[in-house]
Simulated assay, not measured.
Amino acid sequence: MNLKNILIAGLILIFNTSYAQETRNWNGKKCAVVLTYDDALNIHLDKVIPMLDAYKFKGTFYLIGSAPVVSKRLTEWRAAAKNGHELGNHTLNHPCDGTLPGRGFVTAENDLSRYTVARAVNEIRVTNTLLKAIDGKDERTFAYPCGDLTISDTLYYNFLKNDFVGARGVVSAYPQLKDVNLSDITAFAQIGSTAAQMIAQIEEAEKTGSFVVLLFHGVGGEHPLNIELEEHRKLLEYLKKKEKDIWVATMVDVAKYIKKGQNLR
């Protein structure tokens, strides 16, 4: 082999190595997937967590502090956390902005537009205290109820950045690691989704070298925003087959990884 061919072979090797590193920047995988479940439902304890455990995946469960499913089933939530699932903060009373269209379900008591920033911050911190009493952990993530970010044009999470590793929103996108906004982490809400539709979202994240957060409420019932339990199982089956290329982790672990990656740049 002459010098020219040696140089070309060397350049190809460098390119291929760099490309492999570039497309496997999610804990050594091509992309990351986070499975999140909102509102503290019985179905999460009865069906979802056992299914995740069967496939050896960990999920993030955003608990409403005042939800009866929290107070009545503390032991089971504690066991889930001990087994590696994240208990995230979804506020004390799930306040949403009642002035927005389609918000007929919002009552005067949980109308975010009637809150002060101080009240919102205090209730979220109270919920953190409750969650720590359940799981003993100091690090966790937050999820905005209804995806509402502001109170009277004030971004209330700005007062809570030191309390959390990150905050999950509801806007769908495929950002690169360096561009992720940890104060409003992108997510894809699943409402009536099939496994094929969710897999397509994951494949797009893999193709772009990004990550995807799947946002669930009901899984097999108990909530108007629901997907079928069998579609959820098919999704987990796909993720299990793709473990070599896809990192499935909790929101807190992925947010910590993103933060570390951004700080290294």
Results as ranks from 00 to 15, higher is better:
Ile6Ser: 00
Leu11Met: 05
Thr23Ser: 11
Thr23Lys: 12
Trp26Ala: 12
Gly28Pro: 02
Ala32Trp: 05
Thr36Tyr: 04
Leu41Thr: 03
His44Ser: 04
Leu45Phe: 15
Val48Tyr: 04
Tyr55Ile: 02
Tyr55Gly: 04
Thr60His: 07
Ser66Leu: 00
Lys72Leu: 01
Thr75Lys: 15
Glu76Ile: 06
Trp77Ser: 00
Trp77Lys: 00
Leu87Val: 09
Asn89Pro: 04
His90Ala: 06
Thr91Arg: 03
Thr91Ser: 12
His94Glu: 08
Pro95Phe: 01
Ala108Glu: 13
Asn110Ala: 03
Ala120His: 05
Ile124Arg: 08
Leu130Phe: 00
Leu131Glu: 14
Leu131Ala: 14
Lys132Gly: 00
Ile134Trp: 15
Asp135Lys: 02
Lys137Gln: 04
Tyr144Ile: 03
Ser152Pro: 05
Thr154Ile: 14
Tyr157Phe: 15
Leu160Pro: 08
Gly166Ala: 13
Arg168Leu: 13
Gly169Glu: 05
Val170Gly: 08
Pro175Arg: 09
Asp179Ala: 13
Ser183Gln: 12
Ser193Cys: 07
Ser193Asp: 06
Met198Trp: 01
Ala200Phe: 02
Ala205Thr: 07
Thr208Lys: 13
Thr208Asn: 07
Leu215Trp: 11
His223Pro: 09
Leu225Thr: 04
Leu225Met: 07
Glu228Thr: 14
Glu228Ile: 12
Glu230Thr: 03
Glu230Cys: 00
Lys241Val: 05
Trp247Arg: 05
Lys260Asn: 08
